[in-house]
Computed example of a mutant assay.
Amino acid sequence: MIILVFSIVTIVYLIVIGRLIAGFEKVEKFHLEDIKETTSFSIIIPFRNEAENLPVLLESLSQLDYPKLMFEVLFVDDESTDTSVMVIEHFKKTHAFEYSILKNNRKSHSPKKDAINTAIVQAKHPWIITTDADCKLPKYWLSSFDGFIQKNKSVLIAGPVTYFNKSSFFHKFQTLDFLSLIGTTIGSFGMKKPFMCNGANLAYKKSLFKILNGFENHDHLASGDDVFLLQQAGEKYPNEVHFLKSEHALVKTQPTANFKALKNQRIRWASKTGHYGSAFGKGLALLVFATNMVMVTGIFLSIFGLIPLVTFIKLFFLKSAIDFLFLYKMTRFTSQEHLLKSFVFSTLIYPFYCSAMAIFSLRKQYVWKDRAFKN
């Protein structure tokens, strides 16, 4: 009976991940063309104590290859206690760079949603595009979104994100895990079941934000400024939410520095799942957890002779094979194929990691930007 249950869970996992891979392939790669720009953007960047990371972001903003009159940059200071504001102001003195720094107008349980609300009130352009203060933007970031908008009828466009390349195994492991989430994002768009995106690279019409009443329906949750807006947009405009699959739109961000920060980050992300309006999103999260629990319990059951070791190895191999194929496609897309050298060790510890994170997230308590939250 145990072997049957384990086999069914693994087979369902193979089928669903196989469908996500097929969905990833269905999302056509967007090729940037040399055309006249027509879209104007308001770039919104909330920040809190990011003095260390802001120089990289500021430099990439100054290098954007896009007409300066067709975009604005709105920084929103969320009660920073370090020199973040000074870093931004100093950059202006040494670069031809225009921006505004706004003070976050706190009204809800979510500092980031309040920050975006604060900026949108001031935004003068029809398209909003958000990113984070610890990111690096590609040179043709805005050009890619503009080109896509000109060719597609869109109200919301999600873009790709990856981590900076780091040398340690801890950072490589995080990147592979993160790429699996981005791959799931792209695959779900290809399946016409989008439920996930990343606010570090997200564009939407300002008019859409107003139509959906912004974050009003979920401002009691500390996170989710990106995914809940996507899910609402997908329900109202199912054919007008898209993924921009282009290396020219690939934003890079920082992995967490230590396990404690990683745990808090993953709890923050997982805490949103129970509030998803997407049945597919909830079901996928449950399936991933169940499959990894099968792998963890299977190890101990096979050690104690309760299930045949050969059977467990076969199930583990099948799961690892589909995971490798999925990550292979993502690392090729992001030009990070070197990460696959860490796959074998990563796949051995991932079931324990995934199961532990799922259990930690049941508390729904985490620390983010030096603040304690509970969803």
Rank of each mutant, 00 (worst) to 15 (best):
F189M: 07
T347F: 11
P46V: 02
G147T: 09
V87D: 02
S355H: 07
H248Q: 12
F360G: 05
L362W: 11
P111T: 04
D146V: 01
L64I: 09
I21W: 09
D132N: 09
V9M: 09
S100E: 14
T10V: 11
F164G: 00
E216T: 14
I44C: 02
T131D: 07
S143I: 04
Q150C: 04
K103E: 13
Y328C: 12
K206F: 00
P194N: 04
K319S: 05
T118N: 04
A222C: 14
L230W: 03
F47K: 06
K364P: 13
F300N: 08
A96M: 11
T297I: 08
V227C: 05
T334K: 09
T185C: 14
M191Y: 07
A123C: 03
L69A: 12
H95Q: 11
F91T: 09
C135H: 00
V85I: 14
V241A: 09
H125G: 00
L262W: 13
S144W: 05
L362E: 10
D78Q: 10
G23L: 07
Y328W: 15
L156T: 00
A257Q: 15
A200Y: 07
M295F: 06
F75Q: 02
H218N: 13
K282R: 10
S108D: 06
E240W: 08
Q265T: 13
H220F: 13
P67W: 01
D134N: 14
L176E: 07
P46M: 02
L32R: 01
S60D: 06
D82H: 10
P255R: 04
E33T: 05
A249K: 06
F352V: 08
K210T: 15
T175K: 07
I313G: 10
A119Y: 01
G199P: 03
E72D: 10
D219R: 11
V367S: 12
N258S: 12
L74N: 06
S40Y: 01
L137K: 01
A321Y: 15
V344P: 09
K93C: 07
L309R: 14
S246C: 04
D132S: 04
L74K: 01
F360E: 06
F333N: 02
R363Y: 14
L348K: 04
F91A: 08
V310S: 13
Y353E: 14
K151C: 03
Y99L: 06
K193C: 05
I299Q: 11
P194Y: 06
V56W: 00
E216Q: 15
D219H: 13
M293Y: 15
I116G: 00
V56S: 03
L287F: 05
F195G: 01
L32W: 02
P255T: 11
Y353D: 12
T175A: 09
T253S: 08
H95K: 14
Y13K: 06
P111D: 05
K113S: 08
T273V: 13
I322S: 09
H218W: 15
R19P: 05
K112G: 03
Y276M: 08
A96N: 11
I322L: 05
Q231P: 10
